[in-house]
Amino acid sequence: MSLLLEVAMSGLLLGGVYALIAVGLNLQYGLMRILNVAHGEFLMIGGYVTYLLVSLRGWNPLLTLLVSGPLLFAVGLAVHGLLFRHLVRLRRTREELEANSLLISFGLMFILQNVALILWQADMRGYRYLDQPLQVFGAVFPANRVVAFAIALGFTILLFAFLHGTLAGTSLRGLMQDVVGARLVGLPVRRMHAACFGLGAALAGVSGSLLSMLYPLTPDIGVSYTVTALIVIILGGLGSVAGSFAGGLLLGVVEALGVHFTDPAFRMVLKYGVLALVLVLRPYGLFNTVARRPEQMQKA
């Protein structure tokens, strides 16, 4: 198998995890216009939960998803109740909500990072899990990446099925399109907001657990993943799970190939480069059709 194909596939594997991170953020932003830049910090916490359970209790990392997901769901509910519920109620315009939620979550980001610094210091922490080589279609990948990709893919498909195949999911999508309409047909808008925020945080937690299988943890890993998620959302379009998934994979491949042709030091530059290019060429996202342009969407 040619090297380029192998590098691209390794990017795809990582892109699957990017997609899951972005889907979580997309739920929060697409649905409620809450721009939660502390999303990466929820991810970091999920990673540490897994690390602690693996290193202190000897758990299988995969099993820890059952803890990090629900735990972060609860944290998400609490954060929403404490910080954002009020904000959503008070907001007059969408812009005001976006700006205020950005400020609040920015503060939250620093608080969570510093709490993590106090609890776990700035040391790199990690454990080894399934890091032996695995043959996939003639190419060799670390087994843990393949596992992380498969699980991220599974979660994304589950979420897609939930949004498109269940009544609750359909109501959520309805809410995303038109809040007033959703109220009129009797949807419990406030509770759905809280649940949705919690779900986004839970997905961040799960992604963090998966990433901890691949990379060492430090309290400051969150920011780069928040940025990654934002880029993926912009690539894939607001509120679209399928778009986020495709965007995540694309970003993973571009990053892997870019690093291959340049230097690992350019990883973030490449990501921002993709973002800039998309903003210039297709400001509404790669996959958005004209009908889904923001000005044609109703006010959230």
């Binding site: 670390p142 690093v259 291959h260 690992p264």
Partner: peptide, 9 residues
């Protein structure tokens, strides 16, 4: 945090 693609090269 990741050098696998460089090492593939």
């Amino acid at each position: 945090s990741d050098l696998s693609d460089v090492l593939r090269g």
